[in-house]
Design a protein around this nucleic acid. Structure first.
Lengths: 218, 218, 218, 218
DNA sequence: TATGAATGAGCCTTCATTCAT
DNA sequence: AATGAATGAAGGCTCATTCAT
């Protein structure tokens, strides 16, 4: 019961962590100063030593989610492997039970921020863009390596990938029984994969890169 | 100056209509009794003659959006035409400047309801499901008519379609410059279309990877 | 102990009355919603049914003080009497023990508003101006009637009159022993009176109007 | 980047200087510890090494204003010159664009302190009294030197002088267009000057109305 | 000596809802 | 069918001040 006296940076981290929980539990407007400080074991006034305003907390939360997301994704990418396999890895990462159980998908935080202040939406926009950029780069690389059909436009494909994540999370939010990690989601992924791989023209040229795929050629 | 004395049913409709505007403007938590009744020209207390609670308003709003959506979609489907063309029509309908400018995309209302009460989420779930059902049926029909590849799973494809709508609206919300009706969105549609159409020509070449799929080849 | 359910207009009056007391007691920043509503026996939320904001209360307070002031002054002016006597009456009215004991001199409320919002200062400005206007008109009339020297500029004289009131109140506020109604204040008034009456040139012309003065010409 | 480590006495001076600015900008309740220390570049806690409390700052501020005021006035008085000219000099000093533009008229600080603690009001009272004393002495001297009518009571005249300053500042605060240094203010001064000078010439003519006055004519 | 962290009381305002009329 | 007055809880935020380090 002793009041912990944390250092600025640690308190900030703690607050962001609690903020994440609150948003996960009930959206951005469940993130109130009262609840936040109560959970953190400090007074409301103390919060303002570490953040300028509630908006400041939200913005930093989004930034943190952004950083963690990028970091996690990048570390899970195998630059020597197949880019389509990497995409699948990323998708599974979003669907990982740990993340989803906590409800802290970046999608959740993103959607919850839609109607907040201009500054918060700006942070949200950055999150969307940096995420799309990573996926886009990966697809571009896949095309270069001949793993993805060269008629595929990376920007469209990355948006579709984002859409897959988003729709999965949305379904799951409105119906918790509909967990993304079941078979149906697998076939959603297969549909996407197909749209990347297959394209009929210049078949001769594409055949070779496909050799790297598993379970093919006999 | 005379206060219009509307009939119960008309007042309800009027209130739902205003509720739609408010949610479009600033999400579900912009829907307050105060604003609602002020816009409707009635007292706050009067609202409770027509709805049991604020939640009741939101639920009825979602239901109404649901009905209107289904209705609009169904009336725009040409049962004699190509099912893929129908899907494109539906997509353009979502992107129509009228709808988007008002921000009343069903996606907006849906996402805005994610963290409301259980009952509201139930209504949201119904909206998601009935929408997916329509798209699913359309795809199923397309397969039957041979317009869509028979290896496509209607459930996955409908979710992907939903995802396309959702990601487009999300991007647009966070960056209003990124309007869904520009070229990039077109190519998003083309990517999806490809994943539906292609597959069956050159069957001999493509068959192998799909061996893992169920219910095929015989 | 029964909760009184007052009508809008009565509640407004009551609130303004309490606001007056609070400002008198401790300046404008003693006027808090908490104290106001506690004294009025209503909840803080209830206050907002009758006024839009705290500023709204202050502005209406100043307006009310303004009206009452003008009204009181006008009713104490004897249009048939000597204008200088009228001015003295007005001064004594400001100094009346009833007003001062309560500390609700308009000067007090005025000074207390100096550093509030632009809108409040606007109301304060109106108060200053309407007060000066009355005094000015009275002096102008006095000149017309030959009771005040015609070289006197009404605008300057009215400001000086205001200054007399203000300095008296200020002294009294900082030192309650220095009540305006003692001999020294009388001689302050005489000094002012002198500056209005006496002017040496054209004595022949001024002598006649002075006949109306008491204790003169034998 | 190195924090300046001022000596106790210098830090105090600096703080009082900043306090003056803050009060000028927005009255006494714009003088907060936060703003004060931020401007001074020290922590809030550090302030309490130099002053016991916020009130202590305010009291010392008033004292400082007092000292500076007396000092400035005294240095601008020409003991060989005409005392009425000296008064005019003092008035113009108060109206000097530098002082007014900064809003640091002693009147402003005085009025802003009206509703503070007893101790602060005490300091305010001292300020009022020492100011009045100076003016009073000057007028007394003027009478002795025959420059001011001997029927003028120094105490009343000094209060009226104070009133002139006060009303000018008040008008200017509520309406910044009404700057004290325009023609109208000049005529305010002339009115005051008249009330000091005139009276003794044409004594024979004026004597009658003054019969009612005490201690005259012998 | 000086800081960084925290406090507790208070600020104005908005919320959904109730109830007597 | 509707009003007008009121409620209690909660919202974000600022204040002067204290105290362990």
């Amino acid at each position: 019961m002793t009041k912990k006296r944390l250092k600025h940076i640690d308190r900030q981290k703690q607050i962001i962590e609690i903020a994440k929980e609150l948003v996960s539990e009930g959206g951005v407007h469940n993130l109130t100063i009262r609840k936040l400080t109560k959970k953190a074991g400090i007074t409301e006034a103390a919060l303002y030593r570490h953040f300028n305003s509630r908006d400041d907390v939200v913005i930093n939360l989004i930034k943190e989610v952004n950083e963690k997301l990028i970091e996690t994704i990048k570390s899970s990418i195998n630059s020597d492997g197949n880019s389509i396999d990497d995409l699948e890895k990323i998708l599974n990462l979003h669907y990982s039970s740990i993340e989803l159980r906590k409800g802290l998908s970046f999608i959740v935080i993103l959607q919850a921020s839609e109607f907040e202040s201009q500054e918060i939406r700006q942070a949200g926009n950055n999150l969307v863009r940096s995420y799309l950029k990573i996926i886009e780069d990966l697809i571009y690389l896949g095309i270069k390596k001949g793993e993805i059909d060269r008629t595929v436009e990376p920007e469209s494909a990355s948006m579709m990938f984002f859409g897959i994540v988003q729709v999965s999370v949305t379904r799951w939010i409105f119906d918790p029984e509909h967990h993304p990690l079941n078979e149906k989601s697998k076939s959603l992924w297969n549909l996407f994969r197909t749209s990347l791989e297959f394209m009929d023209e210049d078949l001769e040229l594409h055949r070779v890169p496909f050799q790297s795929n598993t379970n093919r050629e006999k």
